[in-house]
Structure formats: structure tokens, C-alpha cells
Design a protein around this nucleic acid. Structure first.
Lengths: 263, 263
DNA sequence: AACCATTGTTACGCATATAAAACAACAAGG
DNA sequence: CCTTGTTGTTTTATATGCGTAACAATGGTT
């Protein structure tokens, strides 16, 4: 509700652009359509400014005016941007066949995600054929410290980095009890770091095995997991064969990264 | 190469925002990373302006500076935007289970797309389990008049609208020969309109059956198709059972639309 | 090394984008 | 019907974002 009001007053910021972006950010699953006045109220801007901003965004296809109303919602153009992002990431291109393969040999859903701010952001999913797909779509987010992939990545980071990052950060998340304090998180990561992989149930009824991915220079850049109902066969021995398969897939992805000299 | 230089000089445009958006648009599969100077040259802007714009976009997570270099590429934030868009579209939510079902009963890949400008934009895909996935990813584009879904949509639009839209538009597309002139397109649409669905091979070796989707008010809002290698069993009778299944799926989607009173 | 070219970054004055206020168009309500 | 309170849109004077030009920092070339 109250995110620390961060007025970045560097004179290098382009205010018009800043407003446009935060305006786009208002539209989410919960609030798919807004009017000028609503936006103005939300962003604490004059209607005139919002008018011009919306006018610009609409012209560029990032916003769409709903028929016979003065409500606006996100336009198709924003999708193209996301598509371009995914396809500019060799990470996804490299991981795709391997995660598809892992899905096929295990029969469970596999995912790839990276850390953005305090979230993990899913950038690929190979959904299991058998069961109805989970809700971990590409583009969705989850607090990093309560997701298997997030923990896999955090565990590979220097402890000092993690400590600084989470200093004063409230770890409490709805529906997740596990690490409620930083000390608990540190302990989780310590155990998991020693073991070399993450395994367990992060959502009740769902088991996951996650491992971090490194680029050719050794930097942790993402993580993958196998995650599905704990009742299905392959999830029975998450500490056995399944773990080995995930580790193998991860190191294969890491190995293939960075061999295509980009740019 | 030379898109008609459209200077929209309405005084309502926010220049800073306009620049930021077109800057983001530069990054694609072909050009995943750029330096300030490259961008400046491309957009014909001073480096100072580009500096400020990039500075802003980076701060907001829409751009990322590559390690130990002054190259920038798209940041994860753009993905979230696309995700929000998809989930604010009841179209996708409604179509998902039906297209998944259609994929399962046919064994072929199914897609949903809508028209944006002169392109079809894919907004959902249920990939076939058997074969390696096609390259029609969510967020990708194709000239509308050479895609099955695009033609399905265009055929449902009033002919006058299509005529005006494509007046003076060059229909020639690489690797596609079919409708090279507007008259040819008109003839295609006429035939397909009479038949009530689109079927055929738009890419060599691939067969497709497409039908338009209407919202509760009768407006054409999107299209769906079944599209896969023409050699696989279910594609043998695209004018028979397969066509019926697609038509049924489409009308089911259309029926379910607009019953969730939004806003 | 000294050169030159080319980069990212900072400073500053003028053109211009913007916030406040006026306007128009509508709806509700007494 | 005339208020009163909403909207979205237009205007305009002034605060400010922008291009020019200088600066700094790098890297290649002889």
C-alpha cells in the first residue's frame, strides 16, 4: 500500500517519460481500465497532464480507448515489447529446448526465472501435458525469497550482498510463513547452499526442485526448477533422480551460455 | 526500410515520452543491444537527450546496462507490462481452456491473435505436445493479410473498411506470394467470407483453419486457428471435421465473452 | 607516447512543455 | 429549469526540458 515514496530528483530524469511509464504501470489485473480523472487522482497529476500523456500513449498503441467510453486500458503494443525482450535474451533461447526436454522426461512442469528487484520474474515455462497448467505464467512475479528459483539464486549470491539487499526489508508475505525474518532466510540459504540445490514445498501440495544458472563468466543470471503436484510419480524422490536431472539441465544451460558472441 | 515519416505534430504529444517509447521500440531480435551513440544516430537525436532518456528508462527497469560496457538492452520490466496486458484481456482468459481443449482433441497447435495496425498479433498459443513448437509465439507479429487468422478477421469486416485500410498499402511480403494486389486480397476475402472460415496453406508445409471471434456486441475482436504440419493426421480433412471443431470452439468463445461485466 | 577519434557526461541559455485556470459538455438532482 | 458537480478539452504565461557546445575518459593507430 505504502511504498516508500521515492522522488528521484536527478535532473537527468525526463519527467514526461517518467509519468508515462508510471501511468502504464497502473494497469494490472486488478485494475484493467481507468478514466483520465482516475489516473490523475492516482498519480496526483493535473488532468491536463494526464490528458496529454494518455493522448501520447494512445497514439503509440500502448493504451487503447474502450469503445464508446472514456476508459482506457493497455494496448497491444506492450506485448510486442515483452516479446522483443524475451527474444533478445539468449538465456531463453538456450534454455527452451532443455527445459522442454526436462518437462518431457519428468512429466512435470519446468520453469525459468530471474531476479528483478525483490521478485522472481518468470521468463519461460514448459507446462506439463497432463495437468491443467499452473498459474506461473511468463511475465508473472513472486517474492524471490519464498520461491524455489528465487532461493536458488539468492543462495548462490555472496551472503553480504543478500544481507545488504534485504536490510530492513519486510519478508512477511501473504500465504507464506516460512522465512519471516532475515535470520530465518539466512539459515534457509545456508542449508540450501551446502546442499547445492533447493528442494521442498513452497506452496502447499506443490513440490519444487530448483537450481541456479550461471553465464560464461560465472555470474548467477537466472534459475530453473521442476515444480508440480507432490502427488505425481516423479515428484516422489525430489532428492534423488529428479534432483540430478535438474542439476544436469542447469549445468547444460550454463555450459551453452555465452558461446554465441552477441552484438 | 522507409516507413512514411509520420510527424504527428499535435501539440498534445509529450515529446519526452514519445522519444522514450520509440527508443524502446528500437530493441528487437535483430538489435538486442545498443550504445547511446547508436541510439542517437538512429533516432536523430542529440546524445544529451538520449542520455537523459536512457537514464530514465534504466532507472525504471525498462532498460538494463550490460555489465562492464555501455551497451543497453531491454530490461525485465517490459515483460511485466505485457503480462498485465494479457491478464487484463478477458479474451485470453476465456479462450485459454477452449484452445487448450481444441489442441488436445486435434493434437495440433492452436492460436489466438488480434489485429493491430496491419499485423496480426498472437496473444495465445496452445502448442502441440508432439512436435517441436512453431515460432508463432505470444507477442509475435505477422502481416495480417497473409495469415490465416488475419484473413479470418478481415473477411468479417465490412469490405469498405478493408478497402480504405489497405488503400495504397503495399501487400507484397517476403516469402509470401498469394495476394500481391488489393484486388487479389479482395477476391480471397470474398471466397472465404462466403465459406465462413479460412482454410489452406499459408506457409508451405503448414495447414491452417481459422475463424473470427466476436464479442457480445457482435464486433470482431480476434481470431483463432488450428495450424500445424499438413502431414499429420488431423490436418488431412481441414474442410471436414477439423473445420467444424474450430467453428465450434470459436462460437463457444464468442458466446462466453462479455458476460463478466468489467470495470 | 602523443595523437586523434569517439565515446559518455555535464553546463547553460533559449525554445517549449507544463500546471493552473478557463471552457465546454454532459449528468444528476432539487 | 436552473444549479452544481462531474467530466474531457483548450488556452496561456512561465517554469523547465532540450539541443548546443564544452568537458572528460576511453581506446585505437602510428
Amino acid at each position: 500500500m505504502d511504498k516508500t515514496s521515492e522522488d528521484v530528483n536527478s535532473s537527468y530524469m525526463v519527467p514526461g517519460l517518467l509519468r508515462g511509464l508510471s501511468l502504464l504501470g497502473l494497469f494490472g489485473k486488478d485494475r484493467p481500465a481507468m478514466r483520465l480523472t482516475d489516473i490523475a487522482k492516482e498519480l496526483k497529476l493535473s488532468r491536463a497532464t494526464v490528458f496529454r500523456t494518455v493522448y501520447t500513449l494512445e497514439h503509440e498503441g500502448y493504451l487503447v480507448r474502450l469503445k464508446d467510453s472514456n476508459y482506457y486500458s493497455l494496448g497491444p503494443r506492450v506485448l510486442t515489447l515483452g516479446f522483443d525482450y524475451l527474444h533478445s535474451q539468449e538465456l531463453v533461447e538456450v534454455a527452451r529446448p532443455i527445459l522442454d526436454g526436462l518437462r518431457d522426461t519428468t512429466g512435470a512442469s519446468t520453469h525459468m526465472a530471474l531476479i528483478d528487484d525483490f521478485d522472481v520474474l518468470y521468463i519461460y515455462r514448459a507446462a506439463s501435458h497432463q495437468r491443467l497448467s499452473s498459474n506461473r505464467h511468463v511475465g508473472s512475479r513472486l517474492p524471490a525469497h519464498v520461491s524455489s528459483i528465487g532461493r536458488a539464486i539468492l543462495a548462490e549470491l555472496p551472503e553480504s550482498v543478500v544481507a545488504e539487499k534485504y536490510a530492513g526489508y519486510d519478508l512477511r508475505v501473504e500465504n507464506y510463513t516460512e522465512p519471516a525474518t532475515f535470520d530465518e532466510l539466512k539459515e534457509c540459504l545456508r542449508v540450501e547452499r551446502e546442499r547445492g540445490y533447493i528442494a521442498g514445498s513452497f506452496v502447499s501440495g506443490i513440490s519444487s526442485v530448483a537450481v541456479a544458472i550461471r553465464d560464461s563468466e560465472g555470474n548467477v543470471v537466472a534459475g530453473i526448477n521442476v515444480s508440480d503436484y507432490e502427488s505425481i510419480p516423479c515428484m516422489k524422490d525430489i532428492h534423488g533422480k529428479l534432483k540430478d536431472k535438474v542439476l544436469a539441465a542447469a549445468s547444460e544451460i550454463s555450459r551453452r551460455l555465452g558461446h554465441t558472441s552477441s552484438l
